[in-house]
Design a binder for these strands. Structure first.
Length: 417
DNA sequence: TCTGGGGTCCTAGGACCC
DNA sequence: TCTGGGGTCCTAGGACCC
């Protein structure tokens, strides 16, 4: 069995703040989200006081003051920098590293045999010595079990090994369902409906029943808890599947012009982020919501998707699409609290070329159908994707299969067929 | 008055096609 | 014009994670 280690930085943002301000050591520290909205990190001392993750700052100010809690605004540049240092150190301990988040990484640790726990302690000591960041390490045959092991490592002495069934059973007996990676409130309720209320019950449940009543995600989780790996290490950074830019507003927005400006800005920022990754998009989604915390107010959440005939990385086009999308979503008299832009269907920008032509009103004739069938027969269904918007219909012939460019030229498609 | 932002994966339901 | 089954694709929304 190949052991997987999960290395997790303890209270990462709070620990980062402490590196540069030693006076914060031993004191309750919390880090706040953008706009100082709510708590996103807590030191152990802050947790001990009972400060909850996500606690809204404006409702907690007085409590914090009473307990002498030190409050910091978040500094993502700093956290990103320290994260890179930690990851670089981890990479010297194994060739198999998956950076899972800013403060966590999975490590493949095969080949250490009995020395694995000592190796984990080395990793821990080195990271602490070279960066000042304390980490916890959980080791097990699967990622889900490694996550559980990590939780116990945090309660104990920093390293927890769950390589045998006995150790796993004993560990799972100490955890709640919601301690597991992937189970939160909703899933807990759904599982309770089929009489599963503990991690051990979940592990030992009939997978068919799980699949039917709780879905494939939970089915896989049960297998992972048994030591059967359903998710390997992702050592190569996968291409992004979506890029988002969204914000909550400081106060409710009711003017259309204001919302339009915000969405234009988000579209531009998302496009810039996309270009940095050498990607292009043909699908832009816009969403708006009211304030869900004001239960007495009328709620409105909506999103809509615009499909462009061709993938683009052009800000102007995306801003225009976002504006069109807003026109669909806009309702007078709504108090908007949050809005955002999501870019989907990302493709490598270098494969998309601009020389395209779109028929303004292509009829869905019999010829079109026949041509489609022929093209599908020759190149397979995957080679063609239909991009349609209203009455406009265009065909894109994928670059890698047929030619080096996308085309929407109807006559050219007929020639190919 | 003040409750984050950026992601992934899955599923239900409708549109559309043969 | 009606009937209908089987299948795919798309969209919106849910749930979860850090």
């Amino acid at each position: 069995m190949r052991p997987v280690a999960l290395v997790d930085c303890n209270n990462f943002y709070a620990s980062c703040e402490r590196l540069f301000q030693p006076r914060l050591r031993g004191k309750p520290v919390v880090v706040l989200s953008n706009n100082d909205g709510c708590v996103i990190a807590r030191s152990n001392e802050a947790k001990a006081i009972g400060i909850a993750m996500g606690a809204p700052w404006h409702l907690s100010k007085e409590t914090f003051k009473r307990h002498g809690v030190i409050v910091r605004s978040s500094n993502y540049t700093l956290y990103g920098d320290i994260s890179r240092r930690v990851m670089r150190i981890l990479s010297t301990f194994t060739p198999h590293l998956e950076i899972y988040s800013i403060d966590e990484a999975f490590l493949g640790l095969e080949g250490f045999g009995d020395r694995i726990e000592g190796h984990a302690r080395d990793i821990r000591r080195t990271v602490l010595q070279w960066t000042g960041i304390p980490v916890s390490i959980g080791i097990a045959p699967t990622k889900t079990l490694a996550k559980a092991a990590n939780r116990l490592a945090k309660r104990g002495n920093g390293v927890s090994l769950l390589m045998t069934t006995d150790a796993q059973s004993e560990a799972l007996a100490q955890l709640k369902l919601t301690d597991l990676w992937g189970v939160a409130g909703r899933m807990e309720k759904r599982l309770a409906a089929i009489d599963i209320t503990s991690p051990l019950q979940l592990r030992d449940a009939d997978v068919h029943v799980l699949r039917q009543h709780a879905g494939v995600v939970i089915e896989r989780m049960a297998l992972e808890l048994r030591g059967i790996s359903c998710a390997g290490l992702l050592e190569l950074v996968p291409q992004a599947k979506s890029i988002m830019c969204s914000r909550s507003f400081g106060r409710a927005v009711t003017a259309r012009r204001e919302l339009e400006e915000a969405l234009s800005t988000y579209a531009e920022r998302a496009a810039a982020k996309m270009r940095r990754q050498d990607l292009a998009t043909s699908t832009i989604q816009v969403f708006v919501t009211t304030n869900p915390f004001k239960a007495q107010e009328t709620q409105y959440t909506a999103s809509t998707t615009i499909t462009l005939p061709v993938a683009t990385a052009n800000s102007t086009k995306l801003v225009k699409a976002a504006t069109t999308a807003l026109a669909r979503l806009w309702r007078d008299g709504v108090r908007y609290k949050k809005a955002g832009v999501v870019l989907l269907d990302l493709v490598d920008a270098r494969t998309v070329q601009a020389d395209l032509w779109t028929s303004p009103d292509l009829p869905r004739s019999l010829r079109l159908m026949q041509a489609m069938d022929k093209l599908n027969a020759v190149y397979g269904r995957e080679t063609l994707s239909l991009a349609s918007s209203g009455r406009k219909v265009a065909w894109a012939l994928r670059a890698e299969k047929r030619s080096l460019r996308y085309t929407t030229d109807w006559n050219e498609l007929l020639r190919v067929a």
